[in-house]
Structure formats: structure tokens, C-alpha cells
Nucleic acid binder design. Structure first.
Lengths: 230, 230, 230, 230
DNA sequence: GATGAATGAGTCTTCATTCAT
DNA sequence: AATGAATGAAGACTCATTCAT
């Protein structure tokens, strides 16, 4: 059941079923990524404390010792996981948004849709959920996430939002407030997916939520343009 | 199903019918609630696994043994906590919304503001965060929360929303989608409060987010009324 | 076999054989000393690294967890052991020597005999052996031993020795050299007892070595009085 | 008994009779000795248990696997180390003493000085310390050392000492007692060197201790010649 | 009713050893 | 011959739970 959640990365079954049956294969380069991928599933399913290194190792198709060959501790696995999962995507996001300039409202909608679907569909959301759940125990991680992920996201979004304010398309909300309005429904799809969808009969259509959100938010911002907000 | 959930934890009203030690009577009645209140703080700070019974006991001003006098296990404490914290508030919420009828859009805004501020400000949000964080380890809790809290909230919100759709004030979104749009920014304030606010210098104005959210959402829904959404 | 080495302190068999069979008895005050006594035997027999907390606990008649109730780590047990075993004896030694004044040569012999027998017979020697064996891993312990035990011993011995030098009874050796001449054979009895005596058929008469040592050393020092030593 | 001790460790002379890879020939011959030399340092610094094969290998400039090429286990390394380090020196010692005959007291002093300086200055002392520290875990090693090293040393010393007793130059002490008087201060310099010298500011003059010891011991024995000792 | 000493199952982590390359 | 990735048994330490007091 966890496997469904982990969209990318190798899983146990990636190991080719038949080879000349070596006790192990030399995979130094691939291993860390494999372990992290396996770790994501286990952490999501059981939380940091509940995840046993044994679980992670087995999910990665190796033994405990091998995990320690690449990561000095469970916490290091967790930290690497957050870093490695989030960073590449962020670069992508910045590249995606960075170039765009022009009429703001439709752009915002497009961005929320595109990124929202990404976030609501990929590991990114799972990592966010992990960070939220474990922030108490990992202030460092929270701080890192705060400064590396959220700050960068806010900067991107803020740049666009301010353009809209200047152009009279959006009301003059503080950027950090506007950002949360934009992120809120995106985040909820992420949390729903890990928290309630697994125990729910009804299908959960994350994309529908994101679409509606993008539409309603831009419409609402447009409608309130130029008005004073309390 | 709900009854099974909190399988055996004592609750506040569990006072044994007759005893002859009035000296302890006062305490005995108050203890379970005191313990749960203390437990909330500890669970929030450290998560379920990270919270030690010793911590909870000390926070409640008693010793470990005493906690076990009222709750048979750590899990029972957690379950009772979710139940006892959420239930009374829900009744309140239903009472609050239940009566109102009339013009829908302003009502919706009022409700989101009032309840949102409540949620974003009180323990309710913390419990939600807990449930989200521990759902993997406590499917029962997640199920309970899903059916008791979310279902009831959705029913309340859905009743109003459908009125708005019928009256042509709102676009015809599926109720569970609309609910998530409404809840998203509320939830984010809750998560922010526990996750990032503790490590952030800048003050976090939850109420501002809720206000803006109520305004933008109702404006957006109004603007899209009658239109087709993809 | 180890039991013979540990002269004082409670051992497992101190537990009264029959009582009203409690799973455990509340012994908060006695426990730390019991654990240390048991630990000495285990450390001597297996060295620090080879000693398992389980061994120590079982030797003390408790379980692992109980040991951790009183000592935060294995290293803490070791440190406390050295401290607690050595300190009281040192006070004794200082009291013993402190008072004496008068003709120096016979006094020195008396002191070496008395203290040497003590050292060669009690736990003191075992602890010294431990410190020697584990100094590499516990520089702190070595430092502590160096400054607390050896320095104090050297001061005591040095005071007497210098009197003898001034009185023309002893040759003018550096005190730290003279001390080592006095300690050497004493130490060897300690090491022999733990290292070779257990695997030897022939009985080992530590007291005979000490007596001979006291006699030969004082005679030698007397014979060399006033002469130049290279 | 001795043969069992070093059960299966390869020794320097183990060179397989014929190979055809001269490129490695030089190394292959030197390796075991290099490994043992490296191992001594590591064992001294960390004790047997604390020494990791990785440490030993790195100190020898090879990798773990290579160590296992020459020694089947860590214990085999330790055993070979003790054997190979001690044996050659012992032969030397026997050669040195063996020939001498004549006036006993000055000879004894000469021997103690010469050998004592050797012992107090070379690896020999370190090995002794190792054996003392690990005897509990390696009764075999202790037995080997007892029978091969100590017994031979005692025999050498005893032969000389008995001559002195017969000639009326020395008091009639049991040989094993007299040996310990002679060895004690020598051993202490060895232990001091590894245990306290590394953490001490003051320089430690092992040779001065040995010189004084040789002088005082022979003087003392001479002074007590013919007297009854208790 | 309350305490806290004691327990012991459960995990992380280390490292000697193996073996494909 | 040499390497070093992989293994897995072993041991320190934690903490929920029990129960004599």
C-alpha cells in the first residue's frame, strides 16, 4: 500500500529477478538513492520513530549494515531524504516560474495548477507531510525546510503576486498571507492523500481540488482587487 | 466502530460509584482531564512515539503510575485525547451553524471567519496536526477522525454550500472539493503554528490569514457562480 | 573464580534466599554499591569492552534496566567504580601515614609492608589493573587516577622519603623515581594476581613478595645513603 | 600447548613455495610483519576489543581484506603479535645472559640495567602491557606468555640468583619472589609509558628508574645476605 | 489513591568476517 | 594479491508497563 505512494525511485522489485544469483551486487552508486526511496515509503507509513532501520533496509533490498554504509544514522537518512527529494524539484520550479513575465492573473492560475498538480501528486507532498509531522523532533529539518523550501517558494510566488498588486489586479495582502491562501488547498491534498485516502473507500481526486482552487483563488483575488481588506 | 476505537481508556465521567475516601475525591475527578491536557502538549511537542509516559506524567504533576491508574496504555491516552478534545468542540460547532439560515454567501464568510479563528487558535488545530502526523500508526484514530470529525464538518458545510449552489450564488463544485478549499488555509495556519512558528522570528498572524481566506474564498465563489469549472 | 578476587561488597548470593518472594525488593540505597561491586568483578574478568551490561546486572542480581536506573552508561559505571573504590582507601592511607613522624627507615619499611599488603590483597590492586588496562580508552580516568591517586600517594611517600634524604638515611634520588622503586613490586603482585594467578597451579604468595620487597628496598636505600647514583 | 595457542595465523616465514607473480613477491613477504607492527600500535592504543580491523589495516596501509589474507581472525593477529614480538627478543636475552658466569652481584646489576633499559624502551614492554590487559579475555595468551616468556626469564634470572645465594652474596629468597622484586620496577616503567606518560606534562625518565632500581636492588640484596627474612 | 523501583522487549548501531570483483 | 561492498550477530541503551510499598 505504501508502494503506491512512492511514485519515483527504485523499489525492491527493481532488483532483476534472475541473475547469476550473487549474494549481493556491487551498486555503490545506486544504493544511496535506493535507500532514500525505500526510506520515504517507510517513513511515510510509520513516521520517523516508528520506522525501523531494518524496515528501511529490507525495503531497499539490503540489510541494515548496508544502510549504515551510506548513512551514519537514521536521522541522517531522514535528513538526506528531505534534502534530496525536495531540492531537485525546487530547481525545476524556479526554472519553470523564473522565465515567465507578462499578464499576472492567468499566469498565477496556470502556476498554481501546474505546480499544485505536481505537489499533490508526487513525493514532494509526502516529504512535506513528513516534515510537518516530525518538525517537533527535528527543528533542524524544520528550519532547513523553512529557509530552503518555503522561503524560496514564497519568493517566487511573492514576485508574481506583487506584480499583480502593482497592476491593480490583486488586493494588497501581505505576501506571506497570500502565499498561505495559495498553498493551503494544495497542502490539504497532500495530507489527505497520506492520512485519509488510504482508509477511505471513496476515490480522492486531488487534481479536481487543485483545479477548483486555482480557479476560485484567482477569481477571488480578482474580485477583491483594489478593495481594502481588514 | 467509534466505541471500539477508544477501547478501554477511562474518561472523565468514569468515577466509580462509591468510595469512602473523600480526601481524594476531588483529585480523582479532575485527574483524567489534567492528564489529557498535559498529554496534548507533550504529544504535540514530540509526537506519539517521542512522548514518554514520564513526560506526560510530569507535565500533569503526577507520576507514571498514576497515569496508568486512569489509562491502560499510552495509546489509550492518545485515543482519549483525540476524542475528548474534539468532541465537545464539535457539538459547539454544530450548535453554532445549525440554527443559521438565510442569505448564504455572507453566512459562509461569517462561519469561516468564526470557526477558522477558533480552529486556528485553539487546541483543535493541534489535535488535527497530531492525527495527521500519526495516522499511519493509528489507522483507527484516522478512521475515527474521518467519520466523526470530518464527516460531521463536511455535512455542516455541505448543507450551506448546496444552498448557495441552488440559489445560484456558488459554482457547482462537488461538496468534498469545496470543503477542502474552505479548510485548506485554515489547516495551514494550524500546521504553521506547530511546525514553523516555533522556529521563526517573524510573528505569525493566524487571524489575518483566516480573514483574508474568508474574504477571498467567498469572493471567488461568488465570481464563479454559474460558470462551468473544468 | 572472579568472586574470590572481589573481597568486599555484596554479591549475588547476598540476596536472602527466602522471603515472601517479591519480584524485587526496594533497595534504592544499597543498589549503586551492589552494582559497582558486581561491576568490578566483571570488568576485571573481561575488561571494559568485554563486559556486557547484562553481565554486570546479573552479577548484581538485577536486570539491565536497573543498572541504568543508577548509572547513565557503562562508562559511568566504570568511572564510579574507580572513584568509589579508590577514594575511601586513600583517605585511610593518608590518615595512617599522616600522623607518623620519627626515625624514617623503619617507618618506611613498616609503611610499605602495611600498605603493600593492603594493596596486594584488596580491590585497590584490581582497580589499578583496570585503570592500566583501559587507560587508552579512558584518558579521563587515567588523568583522574594520575592526579587523585598517584599524586596523593607520591606526596605521602615523598614527604617521608625527603626526610630520609635530609637525615642522610637515603640516597638523593628524585622522589618520582624512588616512588616507582617502592611501588613496582607492589604493583606486580596486583597484576600477577589478576593476570597469571588464575591460570597458574602454583600458589602465589603476595605477602611474601611484599615483605621481601620492604626489606630489600629499605636495606638497599640504607646501603646507598650518601653515595652518588648515576 | 604453545602450538595450539597460535592456532592458525600465518607467520612471516609462511611464504608459499612457488608462485609466478613476482610483482607482488616483495610485498607478500613483508606484509604479515607490517600488519603485526601496525597492529601493535592499534592494540596498545585501544585495547584488543577497541581495535578495529579497519584501524589495523589502515595503519598497515592495506585494506581489511588483505589482513584476512594473512590472518584468519583478529584474535589470530593478536596471538601472532605477541609471539612474533616477544620470541626473537627472548632468544637475544638468553644469548646475552647465557654466556656470563663469574662474580654474581655486579653481573646481576649489569643484567638488570641492560635488559631493563631494553624492556623499558622497546615494544617488549608494550606487549607485556597488552598481555596484562587482555589476559582475562585470552587465557591462552596468558598461559603462553606465562610459560614461554616468564618461565624462561625466571629460569635465566633464577640461575644467576641461586649462584648468588650459594656464594653468600644474596639472601635466601624464593626465586619467584626475587624475580618479582627485580621485574617490578622494570614493569612499572613499561606501564607508565603507555598509561600515564601520554597524559603527563612532565617528562618520564625510564632509564633513570632502571638505573636506580639496579643499584638499589643489588645493594639491598647484598646488605641482607646471610640474614633471615620473615 | 499514589508512588517509583524494577523489568525486559525492542532498536539503533558497530564491526568482524565473507566474498564477488 | 588486493579490494571494499555487503552481511548479520552482538550489545548498549530506552521506555512502556508492572507491582510492592
Amino acid at each position: 500500500m505504501t508502494d503506491q505512494l512512492v511514485s519515483n525511485g527504485a523499489t525492491v522489485s527493481d532488483t532483476p529477478p534472475f541473475e547469476d544469483t550473487p549474494r549481493w551486487r556491487r551498486r555503490k552508486d545506486a544504493r544511496p538513492a535506493e535507500v532514500l526511496s525505500a526510506a520515504l515509503g517507510v517513513f511515510i507509513a510509520k513516521g520517523f520513530a516508528g520506522a525501523r532501520m531494518e524496515d528501511i533496509a529490507r525495503a531497499a533490498g539490503v540489510t541494515k549494515g548496508t544502510v549504515y554504509l551510506y548513512f551514519p544514522s537514521k536521522q541522517a537518512v531522514f535528513e538526506a531524504l528531505v534534502r534530496e527529494t525536495v531540492m531537485p524539484r525546487l530547481d525545476l520550479a524556479e526554472a519553470l516560474i523564473g522565465g515567465h513575465e507578462g499578464p499576472v492573473a492567468p499566469l498565477l492560475r496556470k502556476i498554481i495548477e501546474t505546480l499544485g498538480v505536481q505537489v499533490a501528486t508526487t513525493d514532494l507532498a509526502l516529504v512535506a507531510k513528513l516534515v510537518i509531522g516530525e518538525a517537533g523532533n527535528f527543528p533542524e529539518i524544520a528550519r532547513f525546510y523553512r529557509s530552503e523550501v518555503i522561503a524560496r517558494g514564497e519568493a517566487l510566488f511573492g514576485r508574481i503576486y506583487r506584480l499583480g498588486v502593482l497592476g491593480g489586479e490583486f488586493p494588497d495582502l501581505p505576501v506571506e498571507v497570500a502565499t498561505k491562501l495559495a498553498i493551503g488547498p494544495v497542502l490539504i491534498t497532500a495530507l489527505w492523500r497520506t492520512t485519509f485516502a488510504p482508509i477511505d473507500d471513496r476515490p480522492f481526486d486531488a487534481v479536481a481540488v487543485i483545479r477548483a482552487h486555482a480557479a476560485v483563488l484567482t477569481a477571488g483575488l480578482g474580485a477583491l482587487a483594489g478593495k481594502d481588506l481588514p
